[in-house]
Design a protein around this nucleic acid. Structure first.
Length: 886
RNA sequence: GGGCGGUUAGCUCAGCGGGAGAGCAUUCGCCUCACACGCGAAGGGUCACUGGUUCGAUCCCAGUACCGCCCA
């Protein structure tokens, strides 16, 4: 498959082509009967309504890097994909469609509405799956699951029934968070708190049989319609006389007691608080303590109900205005302050929630949390970075029972039946037809569905076929790793821990890697309303999936948010192109090369060969370590600098001598090394850059050992025996080349001009090294004539630079401006003087010499000696230059 | 109110006990036969502040200031 690669890398067709091949061939499929060690990850299932955003892109790129890496290191990899039915979010989408036709879900009825949602899902749900594929996600797509699948629904029901039977699921009438728009209860986690600028109204409540008024402050004056007490602190001298008396609640003319409770903060406002047990969580607790009545004044849409007297039928904020106006008219409004406080909003529709009395289903999470805490403490599950463990514990220790019922239609309907004859509840695996207690068939099923997060809590085992004891579960559970953002640590990770331990009796994952959130270039959270959203697919179109993946990998440093800028992505696009062009260079020079006919061991490797092979070995080792440690940014930077600054900048240039020269053996040797390093480099890069590496790898000469690069072995270290002394010699040569280039650059010697260079080496070893590598110097530093010897006679007028123990001399002879050379030398001397001063000071410190470890001391002494020698040479050169001046 | 994180080159960020790093941006020189999405060279930082530990602190500890996030 020899072919000419285009001059610039064009990602679009390459990506599409390879993804189709991989998927159709089943390259991502996990085999549960494989004897290889397993590695498994379950995808955090995106909402079926979701469109790919930066968070998904980061999350899935990291998972894909891990999966591809593990696949190449001999593991049987299962990356389990799927989507979440996203109860409220999905129901909202379909309700919006209905609203466009002037209908609501009640016009359709429950069955038809649910049918309609399924239909929506068939037609337009799950587009995010195709978007993930565009990123190159190597999930086992044949196994794609959906939380409302038959199998997963069965798991949900099994879990519900067993928790109920164990007494861990119960019903209770409590205050819950209610979304007046979605018409459903929400768990505490589903409420987002946002600071809002509002008011604090100070209301006057007349004390009965007295001229006195009690002033109470509130941010929600309309709730006064449901007040059932006024509370003061028992220690508060101001009100001691009033405790036990009553006030006459204005507007509704209800008599309510003045009570004493420690909860009341004497410092806040007037020190007297209105108590509305049915509409405030704190008040609810106080109400319980004092056996106060709960008067609910709202209906499920946030409209004042019949308990609100004259305000009946008014929407809550309209009622607020009216209540305030009416109180003001009666002289009962003391004052209004500006006040900002945290307001709870529905996480799905941003409507301000109301604390609302209602009967809901709960999971008693205490016993489950206990196990989940133990599992992390005992190290069965490791959280990376470890700082998140603290957050995890904090939440687990303070966990509240989980409200799992939702008053919507899209979701897993709670498998409980109420008997109209005896009022017993029947909870069963199979749909009940009669009451378990009295046998009556006069029963009806609970209309509520379960919280979406209930089913996702089971994801790691439900997707593998639980409650059956499947082969998949046996092979791949517990999963190896979970990759997720910290925003769903509680929603999802904590609950998977609880459910996994309860039902599988094993942790759901051995490690949890928590990555950062992606923000815009200024650190702002990306949101539609701010208009700062960068669409991942647009990025993929513009820069290619590989470049985008590399960017995310490079940004994914632990413990910090990611500020994404398109400039950076452009930089990695250039990187991919660089790799592409280096490969083009290689392919052009490997046309007559047959890798199966050559072996590295057959050649006497050049200095450059040994150097690059040494660097490759170290790079491979570093990459593996960084991947094992989830240090994705280290992976990216290690591979970047090897590819660009070592392989391209140096080795490719160095190899040209041999590739273009007359020595056929040298050419074959260089071809072998070039091929070997490039081929290995492609494998090293493949987890991050799957598309471009496959494309190039397949274009390399010779036969491939396997059908796709993704099945090839991941390099872990050396591929040839290297003489460390050869590597040192190469590095000296490179230093000499840099020294010559420095002079050329600083003194504006035209790049095309070939010059003469004299090298005065201080050791025979250096002379040998330079003689061996003189072709490199001539080529890379554009040198015409090269002289080298120990104690070489210096040209009369020369520009000087020092490289190791080699004095680099470029004869001035009309080339160089004396004044500029003086300037350059002075600059260099100043630098080295600073070094000498630094080390002198350090080494003359007796305490340092007495206390520092010997290696440090020795190293510093060596550095001082080198710097001093360099300084001497430079000063001598300066003297010579000055002597030239008129 | 409780907790966590951040403050390093103009910008975005690595590093986290032994002479300050990268990418982008900047300056200079180059269309050198893989690549101008490129090549070579260069400039640029009291590592927020104040103390402490140490022979030695950007790095460890304490405090201050300012940003950001999570939970109530």
């Amino acid at each position: 498959m020899k072919k000419e690669l285009p001059k610039g890398y064009e990602p679009a067709q390459v990506e599409q082509k390879w993804f189709d091949v991989w998927e159709q061939r089943g390259d991502f499929h996990a085999d549960e009967t494989s004897a290889k060690p397993h590695y498994s990850i379950v995808i955090p299932p995106p909402n079926v309504t979701g469109v790919l955003h930066m968070g998904h892109a980061l999350n899935n790129t990291l998972q894909d890097i891990l999966c591809r890496w593990k696949r190449m290191t001999g593991h049987e990899v299962l990356w389990m994909p799927g989507t979440d039915h996203a109860g409220i979010a999905t129901q909202n989408v379909v309700e919006k469609q209905l609203a466009a036709d002037g209908k609501d879900r009640h016009d359709l009825g429950r069955d038809e509405f649910v049918q309609r949602v399924w239909q929506w899902r068939e037609e337009s749900g799950g587009q995010i799956i195709n978007q993930l594929k565009r990123l190159g996600a190597s999930c086992d797509w044949q196994r794609e699951r959906f939380t409302m699948d038959e199998g997963l629904s069965k798991a949900v029901r099994e879990v519900f029934v067993r928790l109920y039977e164990d007494g861990l699921i119960y019903r209770a009438n409590r205050l819950i968070n209610w979304c007046p728009r979605c018409h459903t209860a929400l768990s505490d986690l589903e409420v987002e708190h946002e600071d809002k600028q509002g008011n604090l109204w100070h209301l006057r409540y007349p004390v009965k049989d007295s001229e006195q008024v009690l002033v109470v402050a509130t941010t929600r004056p309309e709730t006064m319609l449901g007040d059932t007490a006024v509370a003061v602190n028992p220690e508060d001298e101001r009100y001691r006389e009033l405790i036990g008396k009553t006030v006459l609640l204005p507007l509704v003319d209800r008599e309510i007691p003045i009570i004493a409770d420690d909860y009341v903060d004497m410092e806040f406002g007037s020190g007297a608080v209105k108590i509305t047990p049915a509409h405030d969580f704190n008040d609810f607790e106080i109400g319980k303590r004092h056996e106060l009545e709960n008067i609910n004044v709202l209906d499920e849409s946030g409209v004042i109900n019949e308990n609100g007297g004259p305000y009946h039928g008014q929407e809550r904020y309209q009622a607020r205005k009216n209540v305030v106006a009416d109180l003001d008219a009666k002289g009962l409004l003391e004052k209004v302050d500006d006040y900002s406080n945290a307001v709870g909003e529905c996480y799905r529709c941003k409507t301000i929630i109301e604390p609302y009395m209602s009967k809901q289903w709960y999971v008693s999470v205490g016993p489950l949390a206990k196990e989940a805490i133990k599992a992390v403490e005992g190290g069965d599950t490791k959280i990376v970075p470890a700082q998140w463990e603290k957050t995890y514990y904090e939440w687990m220790y303070n966990i509240q029972d989980w409200c799992i019922s939702r008053q919507i239609w899209w979701g897993h309907r709670i498998p409980a039946w109420y008997c109209d004859d005896c009022e017993a509840i029947t909870v069963a695996m199979d749909d009940a037809t009669s009451c378990k207690k009295c046998g009556s068939s006069n029963i009806r099923q609970e209309t509520d569905v379960l919280d979406t997060w209930f089913s996702s809590a089971l994801w790691p085992f439900s997707t593998m076929g639980w409650p059956e004891r499947t082969e998949t579960l046996q092979k791949f559970y517990p999963t190896s790793c979970l990759v997720t953002g910290f925003d769903i640590l509680f929603f999802w990770v904590a609950r998977m821990m609880m459910m996994g331990l309860k039902f599988m009796e094993q942790v759901p994952f051995k490690e949890v890697y928590i990555h950062a959130l992606v923000r815009d270039a200024h650190g702002q959270k990306m949101s539609k309303s701010k208009g700062n959203v960068i669409d991942p697919l647009t990025i993929v179109d513009e820069y290619g999936a590989d470049a985008f993946r590399y960017t995310l990998c490079a940004f994914a440093a632990m413990g910090r948010d990611i500020k994404l800028s398109t400039e950076r992505i452009g930089g990695y696009r250039n990187f991919v192109n660089k790799l592409w062009n280096a490969s083009r260079f290689a392919l052009m020079n490997l046309e007559d090369f047959d890798p199966s006919a050559e072996s590295l061991a057959d050649f006497e490797l050049s200095l450059a060969d040994q150097w690059i092979l040494d660097r490759f070995a170290k790079t491979a080792a570093e990459a593996n370590q960084a991947l094992a440690d989830y240090k994705f940014n280290d992976v990216a930077s290690t591979l970047y600098s090897f590819t660009w600054h070592e392989f391209c900048d140096w080795y490719v240039e160095l190899s040209k001598q041999d590739l273009y020269g007359d020595d056929a053996n040298a050419r074959r040797r260089a071809q072998t090394v070039l091929y070997t390093v490039l081929e290995g480099l492609l494998r090293l890069l493949h987890p991050v850059l799957p598309f471009v590496t496959e494309e190039i790898w397949q274009a390399l000469p010779g036969e491939r050992p396997c059908i796709s690069i993704m099945q090839a072995d991941y390099p872990t270290g050396g591929i040839a025996t290297i003489d460390p002394a050869a590597v040192d010699r190469m590095e000296l040569l490179m230093e000499v080349i840099r020294a010559i280039r420095n002079i050329r650059g600083e003194l504006d010697v035209p790049p095309g001009k070939r010059i003469a260079v004299a090298l005065d080496a201080k050791s025979a070893a250096s002379v040998t090294a330079i003689n061996t590598g003189q072709a490199y110097i001539k080529s890379l530093a554009r040198v015409e004539e090269l002289q080298v010897a120990v104690g070489l006679e210096h040209p009369k007028q020369a520009s000087t630079q020092v490289a190791g123990d080699v004095e680099v001399l470029i004869p001035l002879a009309g080339l160089i401006n004396v004044a500029e050379e003086e300037l350059r030398l002075n600059k260099e001397i100043a630098k080295v003087e600073k070094d000498v001063g630094f080390f002198n000071k350090k080494l003359s410190n007796e305490k340092f010499v007495a206390n520092a470890p010997p290696q440090v001391l020795e190293k510093d002494r060596g550095k001082l000696a080198a710097a001093e020698e360099k300084l001497t040479i430079l000063r001598q050169s300066l003297d010579k230059i000055l002597a030239l001046k008129p």
